[in-house]
Every structure is written in C-alpha cells, then in structure tokens.
Design a protein around this nucleic acid. Structure first.
Lengths: 161, 161
DNA sequence: GGCGGCAGTGATACACTGTAACAAACCCGC
DNA sequence: GCGGGTTTGTTACAGTGTATCACTGCCGCC
C-alpha cells in the first residue's frame, strides 16, 4: 500500500523505477530519451520532492547546461505516463512509488521534518470522498490530496531526541 | 454542509462575511483595518477564486495603487484567522464559507467550467483519511484536499445546451 | 508635551515557478 | 536524400511570492 520504512530505504529502488519507466515507454511506443531518463533518475534518487529548477541545476554541469524549460517538458511527459507526481503544495515532483491507475485517489503524505513524501491510498478514503462529492452534486475529474505532518520515523526520532 | 445553489446565490453573503470577519477580529483583539476589509470584501464578492494580483488590481484606482505585497500580507492575516482559504491548485483565494475549526478536513470542490469553489466536509471522508493516515503511521498537521470537476449547475447547463 | 515601541502599510527590488515562441537537431519511414 | 513528426535548445517573458527598508499612526509612558 505504501513504501518507505525510513526514507533511505527507497534509494535502492532507483534502478527499478528507471526500468519500469523504460518498460512503460516501450510498451506505449514512446521515447525514453536520455534527457527524460536523467530527469526520471534525478527525481527518483532524491529522498524528497524536487523542484524543477533543482533538477535543472542537478543535471547541469560546466559546459552542459540543462534549462528549466527542458526539465518541465520532461516532467510533463513523465507525469502523463504516471511515472512522476507533482506535489502542488510544494511546487515539486516525486517519483510514483507504485503503479496505480491514473486519476485514482492517492494521498501524498509529506513529512515536514525530513521532507520525504509517501503515497497512500485506501478504499475507505476513496469511498468517503466519492460520497461527499455525490452528496454535493459534484462530478470529479482530478483530485489533489496532500497531507503535511510528521512521518513515523521522524516522530520517533523526535521523541527519542 | 455546503453552500452555493448557483454561484450567484453567495453574493448576498458578502455583508455577513464582512460582519463575521470584523467580529472575529474584535473578539481576538486584532485590527480589522481598511485594507484588510477591502481585501476580504474583494475575495468575498468575487464568485470565484481570486489571485492576489487580481485583488491588487481590483483595489487599485488611478491615484491609489495597492501593491500585491500588501494584498499578500492582508491575505496571510485573513488566512491565519480562518476567514480566507488558499486554493493551492489555482494559486488563488476564496472566502471561508462557514465557520469550521482550523485544520479540520474540508474539501474544496473547484468547478472547471464556472470557476466557482465550494467547500464540503463530511465525517466519512474525515474518518477515511484518519484511518489511512494512522495505518501509514503518519501524524497530520495540515491537509490540502482539492477536487477539480464540474459542479451540478454547470453539468445541467451542459446537458441542456 | 515629548519619547519610544509596535503593528500596519508603502515601495522597491528580487527570487522562484512556469509558459510561449521559434529555431535547430534528431529520427524514421519512404 | 526528403518530408514530417517529435524532441531539445534558447530566449524571452508572465505569474506568483518574499525580503528589505522606510514611513506612518497609534498607544502607553515618563
């Protein structure tokens, strides 16, 4: 349902994520270009949500500048393919931790201490939201569910400290 | 639970909102200054979410310019008092339609056709979210729940047209 | 009355986020 | 090789938000 034991546990998944991204693109007849790969990698290997400009800087090197606009384009592509999510409350991006249908209700759990972002989804939540919307006579197209707080690891760390 | 029959029905509430804002400030020993009042009014009387720059422009007149930064300060104040909400997905602001505890789970229903924003809250949703968070071992501090779609009025209008 | 502190405001400048527009490079089938 | 689509580079710009400093007005106090 969700990942991250601590927020380092996920770093090992970078290779998996890249492999999945490549597979998805091949499946759909789309190009997984070097730039897209680099952007995906940058998002995947960061332990927390990355801003587009952060990524641009990270990918830039003396003699090889990657402009933010290029990063945005790659991110748009990756988001369309469901490989990356945008965190609206942070203007930042994270890798999609698990395959889920596009548009499915996923909540982002954003730790205000470590900055890590976890994905969670649940039937109960989905049900509650659906009924609330139905009662309001509202037809949903796209949802943004983000909760800021403290993740388990950081809370323990604080209590210990 | 929620308001807005159509999105004009709420315009009559402007006076109420201003009165409530004034009452809240007096209660808490805070100043409801002319600027804050004007910003509150601008947010309240618009049928849809207003950007800070929109408000600044609206309040400006030949000879009396209101800078965005002033609007932001007023908005920050009004948000702290729970009189105004920020819609993260739009970078825009709406008046709080009803008194609810700060931090309580409220979902914003954003109509992509008319731009109107409705507030809804429900126990079911709250429960679902709480359990999802608990299961993930996450302690919430602040939630952003925004759904974009079509409100009842606009959907009917589309089917009719 | 004068004085000092404080909240609020004005004004300028700036940082950050995102997009538009156009040109150049690339790939691929024909 | 050629035409057409996609991708990328580059520049410029629009939109959103913050930092900083100066000024005002108010209130309490000596």
């Amino acid at each position: 349902m969700h990942r991250h034991e601590g927020h380092d546990a996920c770093h090992g998944d970078v290779a998996d994520m890249l492999a999945r991204a490549e597979a998805v693109c091949r499946e759909r007849g789309l190009q997984f270009t070097p730039l897209r790969r680099e952007v995906m990698e940058a998002v995947a290997e960061a332990g927390k949500a990355q801003g587009a400009y952060d990524i641009a800087e990270k990918l830039s090197a003396p003699g090889k500048r990657v402009a933010p606009v290029s990063v945005y384009r790659a991110l748009d592509f990756l988001m369309q393919q469901g490989l990356v999510h945008r965190i609206a409350s942070r203007n930042a991006f994270i890798p999609c931790a698990h395959g889920h249908a596009p548009g499915e209700g996923v909540v982002f759990l954003i730790c205000r201490t470590c900055g890590g972002v976890d994905e969670a989804s649940s039937e109960m939540l989905e049900d509650g939201l659906d009924r609330t919307l139905k009662r309001a006579g509202f037809t949903p197209a796209h949802s943004i569910l983000e909760v800021e707080g403290d993740c388990g690891a950081c809370r323990e760390r604080q209590q210990a400290g």
